[in-house]
Amino acid sequence: MKLLYLLIIAALLTACGGKKDDKKDGGSDTTQQQNKAKGNTISFTQEQNKNGGIDTGKLPMHLLNATISVNGQVDVPPENLIAVNVPMGGFLKRTTMLPGEHVLKGQVIAQIENQEYITLQQDYLTSVSKITFLKQEMERQKVLSQQQASPLKLYQQSQSEYNSELAQAAGLAQKLRMIGIDSKKLTPATIRSVINIPSPITGYVSQVNVSVGKFTNPTDIVMELVNTDDIHAALTVFEQDISKIAIGNTVDIKLPSVPGKIYPGKIILIGRVLDSTRSVMVHCHFLKTDKNLLPNMFIQANINTKPQNTMAVPDAALVNFSGQKGIFLAIKKGNNTLYSLVPVKTGVTQDGWNQITLNKPELKDGTFVLKGAFSILSALKNTGDDSE
């Protein structure tokens, strides 16, 4: 009987011990549950922070060489883009020029015919002949006036006529020069009705606007020439970026039609008036060019600005979650730390640092994860999978 009593007591003690163990097991389950995520937020213990190598602090400022992405086109200085016209008009007698053809400065690019050219040359030669006669008459009247054999009035009149004819001849000589005729070499034997139009620059024919036999007025553009030796990039920079650039900034220029090639450049001029699109034109000199660069071609460029002190985080603080860049906000909750993913926009990336802009600027003074963000992201993803 006493033996039976002892066996019953032993059985009861064993049962009580089993219940205590069950409670301990239940406590372990509670510890595991504290990592459960709610949305993009997760809680870490002090031990987990240590194991994940997590460091936190205020968002730092860092010097970064910012770049500004802009668009534009290949342009040429005004002195390298020439519109050829005929000052006195005439019929186009001959031209062999075609768009894209190379021409040299002084090369004949067209011949123009007009009967008025003949009249102009005749008038000049007649005026020169009259000048010789009037000069002799003025000198004769001067002698007679000095000898009191002729009134002073006649000498003054002959002097006036001589000076007037000199002015007439000078004006006609300038008109001849405008149509390419050297008045000093003009003689009755060299009078002609056809003049040559020389190229004012070395370059290429970009456009031909007339055909042989067509009359061209002085205001008509016969053809257009362009010198591509001094092309530059005309870039459109919007208002918010104007203060970030300066003359001398380097530029990396790309042609969409030539992928993978970069043309180095340098800013030489910045516009001073905003246009209707709230932008200015910035002109850049190409440091290297080739035959692929043609006027009016569309280009893309990155302007390299001076280093700027900007809000930035190291690579170890930036994560990509569901296609969204973000950093973790750290909030102490007793002995644990609550981490919440905050979306950000990234800018310049340089030497392991990333320029950021908070989608919620009011959080800028908070405490954020600066190292170990991937450990938090991994736990967030794994816990999210478990909850599903």
Rank of each mutant, 00 (worst) to 15 (best):
G260D: 01
D275A: 00
I253D: 02
V212G: 07
G265D: 06
I181R: 01
I247K: 14
Y263P: 05
S206V: 11
L255R: 06
I221N: 03
N209L: 11
P256V: 13
F286R: 10
A189R: 13
N209F: 12
N249Y: 07
D230G: 11
M297W: 05
I303Y: 08
V210Y: 15
L294E: 08
T190N: 15
I270A: 05
P307S: 04
K214Q: 14
V251K: 04
G260V: 09
G260S: 08
D220A: 00
D290R: 11
E239Y: 10
N217V: 06
V258R: 03
F286K: 06
I262S: 08
P198F: 06
K266E: 07
Y263F: 15
H285Y: 13
I253T: 04
K244L: 13
V280M: 11
G271P: 01
N304R: 14
S211P: 03
D220Q: 04
I181Q: 01
K244M: 14
V205W: 00
N209D: 06
L294F: 08
T228G: 01
N302S: 15
T277R: 06
N302D: 15
V194C: 00
S279V: 00
I267H: 00
I267M: 06
I181S: 04
Y263H: 09
I201A: 12
E239L: 07
L269I: 02
M297K: 02
D275V: 08
V282E: 04
I201W: 09
V282I: 05
I191H: 01
L287D: 15
S243T: 11
K261T: 12
T310Q: 02
S193E: 15
T228C: 04
T310L: 09
I242F: 04
Q308A: 15
G260W: 00
L293S: 01
F238R: 10
G180F: 07
G248Y: 01
I195M: 10
R272N: 11
G213V: 01
I253K: 05
A233Q: 01
S199H: 05
L255S: 08
I197R: 00
K288F: 07
N196T: 06
P259A: 01
N217C: 00
K184Q: 11
I181A: 09
I303V: 10
K291S: 14
P295G: 07
I242S: 11
R278Y: 07
A234H: 12
S199D: 07
L274P: 01
L269R: 14
M281N: 02
Q207H: 13
N217T: 11
K214N: 12
G260Q: 10
K185C: 09
S276K: 12
V208N: 04
T305V: 15
V194F: 12
A189G: 12
A301Q: 01
S279K: 07
T228N: 00
A189W: 02
F238H: 09
N304G: 04
S183N: 08
P256T: 03
A246I: 03
G260H: 09
D275M: 09
P264R: 14
P200F: 12
V210M: 13
L274R: 09
L294G: 09
L235A: 05
I195Y: 06
I195P: 00
D241T: 00
T250F: 07
